[in-house]
Write a protein that binds this DNA or RNA. Structure first.
Ligand code: MN
Ligand code: MN
Ligand code: MN
Ligand code: MN
Lengths: 162, 162
DNA sequence: TATAAAAGTTAGCCTTGACTAATAATTGTA
DNA sequence: TACAATTATTAGTCAAGGCTAACTTTTATA
């Protein structure tokens, strides 16, 4: 952790040949892309949990561990441990044997995740991906799009929604 | 590992409300999306190593551990351990104190990864993402697009290349 | 050709995010 | 209200993918 420092993350122009390196893509800049990618990997699971907890609360009135486990396809033990982490991070409130609730911070993250998720699905649909595939692929892609890219997706979708 | 079985991975239609579940998005289907996503996370780092090794070989004639480390932004020790894993997986050939070479299988994976990487960048450019952001975001997104989505991207780019 | 610098290796540590198995608490039902 | 079924918790295990520090080998150069 603490491997990625946004301050030194200057976005990098593209290569010219087949490989990745050119005058614009120095080893250092490429390394910063990989660091950014590793950072995104770290937050992705947290985001999925929080978004799913919000979905359960909104759909069923509460988020029980057993339902979280069912929808994520993991065991209850895994959920239990992760909920403890989310609590530690002040994203949820949880008491033993009770269901899970979002803090204000958690709710905020959930809404943001949900919006990104939907933008990615919409973009995929607009460029011709079928609905089933769009929902499947968005589950991973959503975590790897920068705000800039999401904004571009949003505007592109708006222009091509017809 | 071995958590994702492509056979039972039926692609899933979308939700209707705000949350994720509807008649078409059952808990089971949503779980299969998450499993697919976890599977992609597992292979992503392997793909980055192999693609980078190919880049180094093509650009510099050989892939030395020190250069792999520099471009990935990790330590030499990390590269050493990972190269041992790649060798185990029959993706590279490597001897102590010598640089790393791709097996036929490794070269194949590298070419495929490279192509996906370029398709994703091209798609992002077409929908209005600037070049620097496109290269940064593609580093993560490239691993999370299904073949169906990549095909859609490819065709969309072809139609909108002008 | 010595010697210093650079590169590679190894051992040991850490966190994350899975798992199983055993146990405990809660909830539904006869 | 008992008791069974469901749900939650805890303890222990594991692999992946990072790290540092110490050491060895190779390579470059004085
Ligand atoms: Mn999501
Ligand atoms: Mn997701
Ligand atoms: Mn790539
Ligand atoms: Mn990548």
């Amino acid at each position: 952790m603490a491997d990625f420092d946004p301050a030194e993350d200057e976005l990098t122009p593209p290569p010219e040949g087949t490989g990745a390196i050119s005058a614009h893509m120095t080893p250092d800049r490429q390394a910063s892309h990989f660091k950014r990618a590793r950072h995104a990997r770290e937050t992705e699971i947290i985001e999925d949990y929080v978004e799913l907890i919000a979905d359960l609360i909104d759909e069923q009135g509460e988020a029980r561990a057993v339902d979280i486990a069912k929808r994520l396809g993991v065991t209850g033990a895994t959920v239990n441990k992760m909920v403890a982490r989310l609590k530690q991070m002040n994203l949820v409130n949880a008491e033993p044997y009770r269901s899970v609730f979002l803090t204000d911070e958690g709710r905020e993250m959930a809404e943001a995740s949900r919006e990104r998720h939907h933008i990615v699905v919409a973009l995929l649909r607009v460029v011709g991906v079928d609905e089933a595939t769009a929902w499947a692929d968005a589950e991973g892609m959503e975590h790897r799009c920068s705000p800039e890219t999401l904004m571009a997706f949003k505007e592109f979708v708006k222009r091509h929604k017809s």
